[in-house]
């Protein structure tokens, strides 16, 4: 079950002559195919934790292992869906995905196979119709879909989603959550999703990792969500397990670790 291991990870930043500890003693083990949501108030270091797993930021102490190998640099085995889609605006939807596919499968797949694979991943997020458009010509929700397609196209061991739907309206967000659930069910990817939306966390995750407030934030509690899949958002609204899980997360966030804005 030990697929991704985060072992006693601390992260501190040095700036303006002082050291700020952002994350302290993070310990978490994630199994293959598991969907983990990380939730916490803004500024608690959720994104930093994701960047550490992605290898975009280096750990200060401790270590992260994926399938027994130390993570110390970014790579396509840990694809990231960025908060603001991060598509390259001068490339079409197709070419954005192609950039990733050419880089990852340039030597292992033929040109025709790569084309098929690009169309297949675009189909997975229902974006084949927009393949020839540029990111500036499609809606925010569609851009985020393409961002997911680009990440999936790398066939990552772990898909890291950094508040991917934070900037979207509620309806679009619901559609994309369904799309992510569907992909998770079909491909069985291991996924880690940062969110600050309690409903999203409960709906999508097998386990919810709740972070305490920073500085020196750490994992406060891990809540398993034992709701069978496939999950349906309408049926869940009255599901006692769902309501209980939701309440537990809310209690954690608003009773025990209330966000104190005045505290720096």
């Amino acid at each position: 079950m030990k697929y991704l291991q985060i072992d006693r990870v601390c992260k501190s930043f040095t700036g303006k002559g002082r050291v700020t500890e952002v994350l302290s003693d993070i310990r978490l083990t994630i199994g293959k195919g598991e969907f983990v949501s990380i939730i916490g108030h803004s500024g608690c270091g959720k994104s930093t934790l994701l960047n550490l797993i992605a290898g975009l930021t280096e750990v200060t102490t401790g270590g992260i292992k994926l399938e027994g190998h130390e993570v110390n640099a970014p790579g396509p085995d840990r694809a990231v869906v960025f908060q603001n889609h991060s598509l390259l605006p001068w490339l079409t939807v197709y070419d954005n995905v192609k950039l990733a596919v050419t880089k990852v499968f340039g030597s292992s797949k033929s040109k025709a196979e790569r084309h098929d694979w690009i169309m297949q991943t675009l189909d997975l997020v229902q974006m084949t119709h927009a393949a020839g458009l540029r990111p500036g010509e499609i809606s925010g929700g569609m851009r985020q879909r393409v961002g997911i397609a680009r990440a999936l196209a790398m066939e990552p061991k772990i898909l890291l989603l950094d508040e991917p739907f934070g900037a979207l309206d509620a309806l679009t967000r619901a559609h994309l959550q369904d799309a992510v659930m569907d992909i998770h069910a079909r491909l069985g990817n291991t996924m880690i999703m940062i969110t600050h939306d309690v409903d999203e966390a409960v709906l999508l995750a097998d386990r919810i990792v709740m972070m305490t407030n920073g500085p020196a934030a750490t994992i406060g509690e891990v809540l398993p969500v034992a709701i069978p899949r496939p999950r349906d958002r309408i049926a869940l609204a009255s599901n006692p397990d769902y309501v209980r899980a939701r309440e537990a997360v809310l209690r954690f966030l608003y009773e025990r670790h209330r966000f104190v804005e005045a505290a720096e």
Binding site: A54, G55, L56, P74, A79, F82, L88, A100
Partner: peptide, 16 residues
């Protein structure tokens, strides 16, 4: 920084 992150995840080399 977003584009740099994309490049880092894809492991683009200097020329790419």
């Amino acid at each position: 920084q977003d584009y740099r992150n994309v490049a880092a995840v894809l492991r683009l080399n200097q020329i790419e």
